[in-house]
Amino acid sequence: MTILAGIGAGPWDALNVGLAMITPFSVGNWVIFIGMLLIILNALLTRSKPVIHSLLTIVLIGYLIDFWLIIVFNDLLFSGLMLKVFVLLVGIVIIAFGASIYLQAEFAIIPIDGFMFALRDLLKVKLMVAKTITELIALVAALIVGGPIGIGTLLITFLIGPLIQFFFPRMKKRIHWKEAGEKEFL
């Protein structure tokens, strides 16, 4: 939704779209390639082995992005600034909400979020600060490759971290409430 809104993709998406525009590879392919690079970078930053099972996550995401962009929404264009902003904002909330849920599983997190956690631990900052830093790094890279940057990019850059920070503890509380209840009875 954030790509299709047409008012600037998120920094990582802008990077992937920009790279897809100047190479023969698709946006989904670049999600996979960048993900592989981030797996290596995350291992270096955390001084640990690469999280190889994250490959499964990025391959799945890469192919799903291509499926949605190429097959499902191939010719979909939104018109009118208000509709574009609405689609973008809904997309941002869905991404933050979804990320806060899937991060609870602590299994095969996408390399972008692994990068966020690595920076959080390395820099000793809050999750939203680390996420904003990773988004700014991607934004600079997207600018270099000529990705679709606009007001939407800035909104995603500065809203996604705080929204994940907002949703994360609430989802953790909801997801783990049953575990806490079971422990009381054991």
Rank of each mutant, 00 (worst) to 15 (best):
P162K: 01
K172E: 15
I149D: 07
E179L: 14
G161W: 02
M171F: 05
I133R: 11
K131I: 00
H176Q: 13
V145M: 03
L139M: 13
F166G: 06
I137Y: 02
G147S: 07
G150M: 06
V140P: 07
L143H: 01
L127I: 10
G150E: 09
I149C: 08
L127Y: 07
I175Q: 02
P148E: 05
F167K: 09
L143E: 01
L163E: 09
L186T: 15
A130C: 00
L139P: 11
L127E: 02
I175T: 09
V129R: 02
L136M: 13
V129D: 04
L139D: 06
L163V: 05
G152D: 08
G146K: 00
E184V: 15
R174H: 13
L136K: 06
E184R: 15
G181Y: 12
R174I: 14
K126D: 15
K131T: 01
L154Q: 03
L139S: 06
L143P: 06
K131Y: 00
T132N: 07
F166K: 04
E182Y: 12
A138C: 11
I137T: 07
K183N: 10
K172D: 15
A130E: 03
L155N: 06
F168Q: 11
T132V: 04
K178T: 12
P148D: 07
G147L: 07
A141I: 10
G181N: 15
L136R: 05
A141M: 10
K173W: 04
H176P: 03
L143A: 08
G152Q: 02
V129G: 00
K178W: 14
R170W: 10
H176N: 14
V125N: 10
G152E: 05
V140K: 03
I156D: 13
I149S: 07
K131V: 00
T153E: 10
